[in-house]
């Protein structure tokens, strides 16, 4: 302790401290910067971009064009950003299987590393939203009450009050959100995939997005009243009242009316 105290009086101490502080800041920045996360390396290396380009050429260029500028069968990806790629490929929606009113989630075709490479390539084509950091999407850091208020106004009309999903026009639908990862929820809000509108950071700030994620995170689990019956509202309740409730009661009535043997 003495030695430490002595060194504090050293004339070089401020410089050492400054260096330490710089190191810490840099480290923290590396860890928490918006475009920096485990999922997407900050400085996407040229190697990643090159590998991503190869993957793109092999799997995506048929629809999106060899330079990702879009064709009749797929939109341009210039400026959609890494977030859009991570969402579309990470939920299995891309590569798309055609037919049907909308492209649906299915088993993911690529490893997370490959997805990151693809994302790096697409991000290199033009500026666009980056993949959020783990902290930005951490449900524990959001406020579910604010999230619920925002969800009700901005999301519930399509996705249902608790995110169980709902119908859109002509066979399209808004999917159930209970199994969607926080990162993908964030990215969907930010990039507005398919029918979904875009909710940029001015409309819903990153904190508000995290609040919404915190709210969704609480849904789909235990319902206080028992079985949630699909959480789709009064229609399923009515069906259960008829089938189970009235079914049991009519069964009992038949028992009462039957002659005892």
């Amino acid at each position: 302790m003495k030695a430490l105290a002595a060194r504090r009086h050293d004339r070089r101490a401020p410089i050492v401290l400054l260096l330490l502080a710089l190191l810490l800041t840099g480290g923290l920045y590396a860890a928490f910067a918006p475009s920096a996360s485990a999922a997407a390396p900050t400085s996407a290396s040229a190697d990643d971009i090159a590998k991503g380009k190869q993957l793109f050429q092999a799997n995506c260029s048929t629809c999106h064009g060899p330079s990702a500028a879009g064709t009749a069968s797929g939109p341009s990806l210039i400026g959609v950003g890494a977030a859009a790629v991570d969402f579309q490929v990470g939920t299995g929606r891309m590569p798309a299987v055609m037919d049907g009113p909308q492209v649906e989630a299915k088993p993911v075709q690529f490893s997370q590393e490959q997805i990151n490479q693809l994302a790096a390539y697409v991000a290199s084509l033009g500026p666009g939203p980056a993949i959020p950091t783990a902290e930005e999407v951490d449900p524990a850091k959001g406020d579910p009450a604010t999230g619920m208020a925002l969800f009700r106004t901005n999301c519930a009309m399509c996705h249902n009050a608790v995110g169980a999903g709902g119908a859109l026009s002509r066979g399209k639908f808004a999917p159930n959100l209970w199994e969607t990862s926080p990162t993908h929820l964030f990215e969907a809000m930010l990039t507005g995939p398919q029918s979904m509108p875009v909710f940029n950071n001015a409309n819903l700030t990153p904190d508000e997005k995290r609040d919404i994620i915190a709210f969704i995170n609480e849904q789909g689990g235990a319902a206080p009243g028992g079985l949630d019956l699909g959480a789709i509202g009064p229609v399923s309740e009515g069906l259960w009242a008829w089938v189970v409730g009235l079914g049991l009661l009519i069964g009992a009535a038949v028992w009462i009316g039957a002659k005892s043997s």
């Binding site: 106004t153 901005n154 507005g192 509108p197 875009v198 909710f199 940029n200 001015a202 409309n203």
Partner: peptide, 9 residues
């Protein structure tokens, strides 16, 4: 702030 494709309530 209102970008194309977005909707605001």
């Amino acid at each position: 702030d209102v970008t194309i494709g977005s909707v605001w309530h």
